[in-house]
């Protein structure tokens, strides 16, 4: 067991892959000489050389499309997008190539690629750099989408992503790279498509992922002071979605709240809430409580940005409204 930050856990996973698989290479903007916008690949160029650590031009569509081609030809590219907001520029390549190629070729082509991208608001980066498009990408069949919130999950999910036969979007909560946690020794993995119960409780199920987990844990502490035991579930995987774990929890608690740090409308939690109504309506004591970011472009001003982001008070108020607790 070692204490690592999420950044260090991702670094460990990437280095393992570079050392163990000659077909793994990393490309993206400023990942080499600069060391990565969030310093995840710092020192990699010196250690692994320019063939494996490729600085790219600022051409997201083209280097992601090139990753698809390289993966289709048997390599295993790991691509860093500086912000998941920039994935917009490459959506054609991610959706029409990475995700659709296998299906439209009748299963002839595999695209084993990892696309890493920091995601989320909270650093006053304004409208174009604060978005959370993992919620859009999670809708697309043919690719998978994960988002860790702990160092152990970051390493375990990255190992799984690096051995998957498909393109995996690896969304890294941008404000959580420094979060520390215990990481087991040895080659453990975290399966893609499996949610994690981070805190057990029998009174209410709280579900989120990424940055949302910090809010949920704070809310759970507040609830505990009032004698309400919350079960806190981290999706970890937005696609495939593990409804079994969530439904099993609701069977126990009869109450559910979903929290999306992305915009509330059309986010992944809208899907979780809809599926809960389908799968567990008889078990629910009231409508699924939903909290999400305001449906506005992300503002720059700190107070406005905080106003748009969901807070612990929003979680508590929503529970009161749905369940009177």
């Amino acid at each position: 067991m070692a204490e690592l930050t999420i950044r260090q856990a991702i670094q460990r996973g990437l280095e393992e892959a570079l050392q163990n698989d000659p077909n793994v290479f990393i490309m993206g903007e400023d990942i080499g000489k600069y060391g990565g916008a969030y310093a995840v690949t710092s020192g990699f160029l010196e250690k692994y050389g320019p063939k494996r650590i490729k600085d790219t031009p600022i051409s997201e569509a083209t280097f992601i499309g090139a990753g698809v081609g390289a993966a289709a030809a048997g390599l295993r590219p790991v691509i860093e997008i500086m912000s998941i907001s920039f994935s917009l520029v490459a959506f054609d390549q991610i959706v029409n190539m990475a995700a659709n190629l296998r299906y439209m070729s009748g299963g002839q082509i595999k695209v084993p690629m990892v696309i890493r991208a920091p995601t989320g608001a909270g650093a006053q980066l304004a409208a174009t750099h604060s978005q959370s498009f993992e919620t859009w990408l999670a809708e697309v069949p043919g690719i998978k989408c994960v988002a860790p919130s702990t160092p152990a999950d970051a390493l375990g999910l990255l190992r799984s992503a690096l051995s998957d036969g498909n393109t995996v979007i690896f969304a890294e909560p941008a404000q959580m790279y420094g979060v520390k946690g215990d990481v087991p020794d040895g080659r453990f993995t975290v399966p893609i498509g499996k949610a994690s119960v981070q805190r057990s409780g029998g009174d209410v199920t709280l579900v989120s992922y990424g940055h949302g987990m910090r809010v949920l844990h704070s809310a759970a502490e507040d609830l505990a002071k009032r004698g309400i035991e919350a079960e806190v579930v981290d999706l970890r995987s937005l696609s495939p979605l593990d409804m079994d774990t969530i439904v099993a929890s609701v069977h126990k608690t009869n109450r559910a709240l979903t929290l999306d740090m992305a915009r509330r409308t059309g986010g992944i939690m809208a899907e979780v809430a809809a599926r809960l109504q389908e799968a567990a309506s008889d078990w629910l004591d009231g409508p699924v409580a939903r909290v999400g970011a305001e449906d506005v472009p992300w503002p720059y001003n700190r107070e406005l940005e905080q106003e748009a982001l969901p807070r612990v008070e929003d979680v508590l108020a929503s529970l009161k409204k749905s369940y009177g607790i």
């Binding site: 280097f63 990753g67 698809v68 390289a70 993966a71 289709a72 390549q93």
Partner: peptide, 8 residues
């Protein structure tokens, strides 16, 4: 871009 990746 796909072709560039195959060439790569």
């Amino acid at each position: 871009p796909l072709a560039a990746g195959l060439a790569l």
